[in-house]
Design a protein around this nucleic acid. Structure first.
Lengths: 103, 103
DNA sequence: AAATTGTGAAACCGAAAAGTTGCATATATA
DNA sequence: TATATATGCAACTTTTCGGTTTCACAATTT
């Protein structure tokens, strides 16, 4: 089962889960309360997020707290880097164009 | 058929297409030459990318040039913003910790 | 005008995904 | 110890996805 961050964030529920656990660690039950699905569905999403290391588990008694692995999110940022270069270049081009017009 | 940028970039072939047309506009045939699939499969990917406006068409005679809509890519960047705040905070915390230790 | 070329779209297929239901296990509480 | 709670996992179903094949259409080229 090949897991990939991009595939992981493709699902809107998973993106919402990521946003939730980014704020503070939460248990599956607490997370599931925020959604209109079953606990098992959320559990499945958490498994996928765990598999691709976007989230990590912290067992505490019989509860398991899930927390965001912020470093993994940086991989998306790194992929965007190549495009960021392009839009910054275009912005600078536009900027110098505007400056030229002004003069 | 609800199209979503995150779902669009979930597929590795589509990410590669995005990277290709980011450099310069290309025709479907030219794009397809870079992959080990049929032109039709690429055409389907292009339709998905067009539907969610990650890419735009520029007809030129009987050829259609596809080009990246860089502004749409910024939406991914904007989504990352909420997490960027977190990792910058954590970095600063680590930084001040290191400074304290140094002292 | 006929043939070629560049392209999109529809129909179909197999694989994977997402959700539900039911069960198993471990920890906590009565 | 018996019960309740928190959780994961496996089996099954429906939907979606990515690919192929076939066809249609418009713009070139001959």
């Amino acid at each position: 089962m090949r897991r990939d961050i991009f595939q992981a964030i493709a699902d809107p529920t998973r993106r919402a889960i990521i946003a939730l656990v980014a704020l503070h660690a939460m248990t599956p039950n607490a997370i599931a309360e925020h959604f209109d699905t079953t606990r098992q569905a959320v559990s499945k999403h958490l498994r996928i997020l765990t598999e691709c290391e976007l989230v990590k588990q912290e067992p505490k008694g019989r509860e398991i707290y899930y927390q965001l692995e912020i470093d993994k999110m940086k991989e998306i940022d790194q992929w965007l880097e190549q495009f960021r270069k392009i839009w910054e270049t275009r912005f600078n081009q536009l900027d110098s164009l505007l400056t030229t017009i002004k003069k």
